[in-house]
Simulated scan of single mutants.
Amino acid sequence: IAELPQDAAPGEIITACEKRLHAAQTLRDAMEKRALAAYFHYAGPAVRLAHSSGSWRHITDPSTGKPCRSWSAWLRAAKVSRQHAFRMVKEEPLMEALTGLNVGVLGVRQIDVLSPVLTKHGKEKVRLVWTTAQDTGDTSAPSLEKVRNQLDLAVKPEDDDEDPDRPSATPVLKFQASPGTFDEGRVREVARAQPEVARLVARTILSELGEDPDEQ
């Protein structure tokens, strides 16, 4: 680790400081990487078992006092991020099943294609899909999906979140963010046509801006 000179030229001091910071950051990154690996090693099996057994449904959601109504609610209660849970439930088992096949880093779409095969058909079928696609020189998600279907291994897409809180794909409102596109006349027209919706939108926006809608 770089020494920190107390009596030296400013250029020498700042160089030493930056070297020390770089060394500290390298050490921190290495420690965080090892800590994350240990976390996945110990937490992963528990998260996978909770998911596969459905036992998470029997835990009370502290925010409602009722049984967890979704996988996401249980993850929040257990303080497990959705990103980590996704890796624990889907990515890690796939990487284990594909050991030795020079897979590299799997993308989310590839995982979505392969994970149902592992769940429904097992390790050997996942390896078959991968190696068949690999033989064609293309292991992209579309290629894997095509091979999977050709091998008659397609399954109904799984909703692993089982999350009724997932927002609808239909937007409640659509805003135009580009400058100069605000059409006041159109806004007034819509407000007259749907006054209750307009009031709700106005109150929500004013509240978000920190203003009291009842004083407007």
Rank of each mutant, 00 (worst) to 15 (best):
V89I: 15
D135I: 11
R166S: 08
S168I: 06
S52T: 13
M31E: 08
C68W: 01
K146P: 08
D29K: 13
E145N: 15
P93D: 05
Q150Y: 10
V197P: 00
P45D: 03
W130Y: 15
K123C: 14
T132R: 14
F86T: 06
V187S: 11
L128T: 15
E91R: 14
H121L: 12
N149V: 13
G210V: 14
A23V: 00
V108P: 04
A38T: 13
T131K: 14
K174Q: 12
D138M: 04
L21Q: 07
A9P: 00
D214C: 11
K156Y: 09
L173A: 11
T181E: 11
A198T: 03
E211Y: 14
Q25A: 03
D165Q: 09
E18D: 00
A8C: 01
A154F: 13
V129T: 15
E196A: 13
T139P: 08
C68K: 00
K174I: 13
W71S: 00
K90C: 08
T119Y: 09
T181D: 01
L101I: 04
L94P: 02
K79G: 06
Q216N: 11
A78W: 07
E18Y: 02
A85I: 05
L27V: 05
S55H: 11
S70M: 01
L101K: 04
V155R: 15
G44M: 10
K123E: 14
H51Q: 07
V197M: 14
S115M: 06
E91F: 11
D163T: 04
L27C: 06
P179C: 07
L101M: 11
Q216R: 14
L206A: 14
A2F: 02
R69I: 09
L75H: 03
A202F: 06
P167C: 07
Q110S: 01
I111N: 00
I205S: 11
V201F: 07
G100W: 02
V113Y: 07
K120Y: 07
E92R: 08
K123A: 07
Y39L: 07
S140H: 10
P179E: 03
R76I: 05
D61R: 04
Q150E: 15
E92M: 12
E145R: 15
L4N: 00
R69E: 08
K125R: 13
A85H: 01
L118G: 12
H51T: 01
K156Q: 12
E96Y: 04
P157D: 09
P67E: 04
R186Y: 11
V117W: 03
P5Y: 02
R20L: 05
A50V: 02
Y42R: 15
D152R: 15
D152G: 07
P45E: 01
L200Q: 13
S140A: 06
L128E: 15
L144A: 13
A78N: 09
A198Q: 08
V147A: 01
L128P: 09
